[in-house]
Design a binder for these strands. Structure first.
Lengths: 200, 200
DNA sequence: CCTACCGATCGGTAGG
DNA sequence: CCTACCGATCGGTAGG
């Protein structure tokens, strides 16, 4: 909930740099953005950036790891407020879509560029993802155990759910009136209800 | 089924160029790949590429439009072989996953870079996509009308389905034994069955 | 935060 | 397909 790009009031120029770089990376790509463009958008010369950051790759790493951690933090907060498995799963989906829409630029940068990080940071991302998917699996398992949901293949169902949620970055425009919560409920609703007619 | 990168035996060097560029763009990104890298992988000097292609942007356009058209062509072929709506939807999902896995490199390049095309070609992509999603909507509507499926929100369900299918490029490794068809059936199966317990 | 500058490399062209 | 080369621009550094 409090990523460096949002908070970090102690280093306002650094925060501004990350914010500006996020927007440029998300629309022009990482390699398609130059240090001079970032500096220009901040109203300084390119050499001045290097007093705040060590290299261009450091900027990418900061953006990607920050938003990946934010997904995890917001999921932990969401879990804490739910009691049943069904509630927990819905809370996780809503939290996921809040990050997706609230940090849309950083999310695109994350999805498109996390594999460009060095091995160490890629491993951290993979580890964060695994844990994150685990939250969804636990919630679904709880909902199955208390009889709300059928005994489905948990890992498979979670992958379908997260795939559908993640892909919204490709078509959902923030201008639409649909809130993050409504979007999450719609998608989860499709998967909960299923297409098949109930046999009476 | 017969994209230029696969066929085009009349211009073998051009095909090779597109094939090599596809692999490099998919692993290093479009801006992260240089003309010299592409030439190097073909065993020629960079200047030699310009007898086959007008610019670097032309290479990207060729890859992206080719795979986008292949999705459409393969969907048309799949439709033709199905009779009921349920069969048609399954055939469309399987065809989709065959392109996803068979042209994995080009698919990544497409997903990550189609917005870098100029307005004209972006419009063509959007138009191809709209038509493509239409195929899925028609099939689902047929399955609802013949009573196989519940009267769900068709547009919403198709978006969830295609999102789940498309997102597989992020986690599905071709080394796994799972075929494109099995993967498609799994994902469609989750959405068809749904999570909710049938009330007896 | 700046000026001044570095070597390296970029996409692309001329002219065979 | 090559050699030779172009101007522009890249990420980054030195030294205030």
């Amino acid at each position: 909930m409090t990523g460096a790009a949002v908070f970090d009031a102690a280093r306002p120029r650094y925060s501004k740099l990350i914010e500006v770089a996020t927007e440029l990376f998300s629309s022009n790509g990482y390699e398609g953005t130059t240090i001079r463009q970032i500096a220009g958008a901040m109203g300084v010369k390119s050499a001045s950036l290097y007093s705040h950051v060590g290299s261009k790759a450091d900027i990418l790493r900061e953006i990607v790891l920050d938003v990946a951690r934010e997904f995890t933090e917001s999921a932990i907060a969401a879990k804490a407020q739910a009691s049943t498995g069904e509630e927990e799963l819905r809370a996780l989906c809503r939290a996921h879509m809040r990050v997706m829409t609230g940090r849309a630029g950083a999310v695109v940068v994350y999805f498109h560029n996390w594999r460009k990080l060095n091995t160490e940071y890629q491993r951290e991302i993979v580890s964060l993802r695994r844990r994150y998917e685990g939250f969804f699996r636990v919630a679904l398992r709880k909902a199955i155990e208390d009889g709300s949901y059928r005994p489905v293949d948990v890992a498979r169902s979670v992958r379908v759910l997260l795939g559908a949620l993640n892909w919204t970055y490709e078509w959902h425009s923030p201008k639409r009136r649909l809130s993050a919560e409504a979007l999450a409920d719609e998608i989860l609703g499709v998967i909960v209800a299923g297409l098949r007619r109930e046999r009476p």
